[in-house]
Computed example of a mutant assay.
Amino acid sequence: MSATAAVPTGEAAKTDRVVVDVSNLTAGYLPGINIINGANLVARKGELIGIIGPNGAGKSTLLKAIFGMVNVRGGDITVNGESIVGLKSDKLVARGVGFVPQTNNVFPSLTIEENLQMGLYQNPRVFSERLDFVTGIFAELGKRLKQRAGSLSGGERQMVAMGRALMMDPAVLLLDEPSAGLSPVRQDDAFIRVSDINKAGVTTIMVEQNARRCLQICDRGYVLDQGHDAHTGTGRELLADPKVIGLYLGTLGQED
């Protein structure tokens, strides 16, 4: 996407074209032990997808499986119609998959600008164009490009990590617990940032422990339990579903 191009927003940015299709996925870290057991997920262009569920349900493992960090033993994962199973991270980035891990997601000894440059190591020629796009979403970063990332707060580091992943103009952005470890105020900021990224036209899949807040901003949600999708629906539908409220939102949701 060109930085000077019209930026799609809201419903106009969403289409029926499938960007990510996870089908009957089985995956795990250790031989013979599967964390993901037949999970399914679809993300269409422009959608914001939320993944919630209890601790140990496999939420982060599902994201890592999409990004090639977990052994896939069955099923398939496609991005824009092409299977990505077995590809290494650098190939996935080139295919349009961006990933922001929960922790250790910036280079603390590098400046903000240098962190963003690292996001474009495969295509450094478009740095100025992509910098304009990223600082259009995260205006604060544009004012502090020479500041070292190690001196930033947790919320600010999260912005840098998201910005770096956006530098390659990903087809889909994977976010692992973007509000984790942040104060309540900074958590609200994180969810606003995720919404801003999605409104700029970026298909986004977010794993989040703050289930209620996640469902409030996502187009569709998946409730993961024991490695498979136990419930799915729009964010509003899941927020109003008695089973989801009773089993998950009572312990996972945070009232505003």
Rank of each mutant, 00 (worst) to 15 (best):
G56R: 02
M168I: 08
L252E: 03
L25Q: 11
M118S: 13
I35S: 15
K14A: 12
C214W: 00
V134H: 09
A65R: 00
T234H: 02
T234R: 04
Y222T: 01
L166K: 05
A200S: 11
L224E: 04
G81P: 08
G10D: 08
D76I: 04
N71Y: 06
V106L: 10
K59M: 00
I112R: 12
C218L: 02
R193Y: 12
K199F: 03
P108Q: 09
K199V: 01
G119E: 01
I36S: 06
I35Y: 00
G38T: 02
D188A: 14
I36V: 15
L252G: 15
Y29S: 08
C218R: 04
V160S: 11
V223I: 11
C214F: 03
G221T: 03
N24S: 15
F133H: 06
T111P: 08
S183V: 06
V100Q: 06
V22Y: 01
R157F: 10
V93Q: 04
Q209C: 06
L62R: 02
V160A: 09
T26C: 13
H231A: 06
I217G: 00
I217H: 00
Q117I: 06
V126I: 15
D76C: 02
T111E: 14
L249R: 05
N198R: 05
N105D: 10
G50W: 01
Q117H: 11
N71W: 00
L110Q: 15
V223D: 04
A94Q: 05
H228A: 04
R17W: 13
A200I: 01
S183C: 12
E156A: 08
A161P: 05
G50V: 00
L215D: 06
V22Q: 03
K146R: 15
L182K: 14
A240G: 03
N55L: 04
V72E: 09
A139S: 14
Y248G: 07
T15L: 12
L25H: 07
I137S: 13
S179H: 02
A12P: 10
L62F: 00
K199W: 03
G32D: 10
G142M: 11
V207I: 00
I51V: 13
G10N: 14
A230Y: 00
G142E: 09
M69H: 11
L145S: 09
N123Y: 08
G10F: 14
D76N: 15
A180C: 04
Q254H: 09
K243G: 08
S109D: 11
L116A: 09
P184F: 05
N55M: 05
N37C: 14
L92Q: 03
N37R: 13
S153E: 10
Y29G: 13
V85I: 14
L41P: 02
K143Y: 08
E208G: 10
D196S: 15
T61Q: 02
G142R: 09
M159V: 01
P242D: 12
N210R: 01
M118W: 10
D229N: 13
R213V: 03
V22A: 09
G28D: 10
D90H: 14
R212Y: 05
M167I: 03
P54Y: 01
I205N: 01
